[in-house]
């Protein structure tokens, strides 16, 4: 089977993590996130792995080694990895896509879900402090912030779209179709 690299993009709580997790469990996929390398470095420095440390490290590295340092690192890691299925989760900027597009087998996949459904999932999982107290308005506002602003543009560029408004079973079927 040829190597497939699935690049996941999508708004908050659309289901990217669920897809990455499914592929890991059922197909032994290797998953990469931009935060992985940040976590490794912070770990080696024995620093706390908090959102603010990661943000700080990301900014520090980008300022000194170029805006695209993390994207180019993931691209190198992906090229070296000999696994058949690789997932790159959390693509947010077109600049990041540029490095991955040239790799053979790369499929940019957008994960879509209704705003209301995503909001409910976010509140239910309460992953980051304060998520359970967010209002729907604040939720929509947060998506317009710097880090997530380009996501709609990346979504438009995707070759494949997965819609995740229903059951897990329906989601899993779409994932299986994706990697055929």
């Amino acid at each position: 089977m040829n190597k497939i690299i699935i690049g996941l993009t999508g708004k908050m709580a659309s289901g990217k993590g669920e897809i990455a997790s499914y592929l890991q469990t059922h197909h032994n996929a290797t998953t990469y996130q931009f935060s992985t390398i940040l976590r490794d470095i912070l770990d080696r420095l024995h620093k706390d792995i908090s959102r603010s440390s990661m943000q700080n490290l990301s900014t520090t590295l980008r300022q000194n080694f170029g805006e695209n340092i993390l994207a180019s690192v993931i691209a190198e890691d992906v090229k070296k990895n000999e696994n058949n299925i690789i997932v790159v989760d959390g693509i947010r900027r077109m600049a990041d896509v540029k490095y991955l597009t040239d790799i053979e087998g790369f499929k940019l996949t957008a994960v879509m879900a209704n705003d209301k459904i995503r909001f409910e999932r976010l509140v239910a999982r309460n992953q980051n402090t304060g998520d359970d107290k967010k209002t729907f308005e604040k939720f929509l506002e947060d998506e317009k912030k710097e880090a997530d602003r380009e996501i709609p543009i990346v979504i438009k560029k995707a070759n494949t779209k997965i819609t995740n408004n229903d059951s897990l079973k329906k989601l899993h079927k779409q994932i299986e179709d994706l990697i055929k």
């Binding site: 470095i41 420095l45 700080n56 900014t59 520090t60 000194n64 080694f65 340092i69 690192v73």
Partner: peptide, 25 residues
């Protein structure tokens, strides 16, 4: 750390990385 970033471990890069980490944190 430089290896994980695919940046060569020249003395200059080692010194720079040390300095930017100290400044950043």
């Amino acid at each position: 750390t430089l290896d994980s970033l695919y940046i060569p471990s020249s003395r200059e890069n080692l010194i720079n990385l040390a300095l930017i980490l100290k400044k950043g944190f």
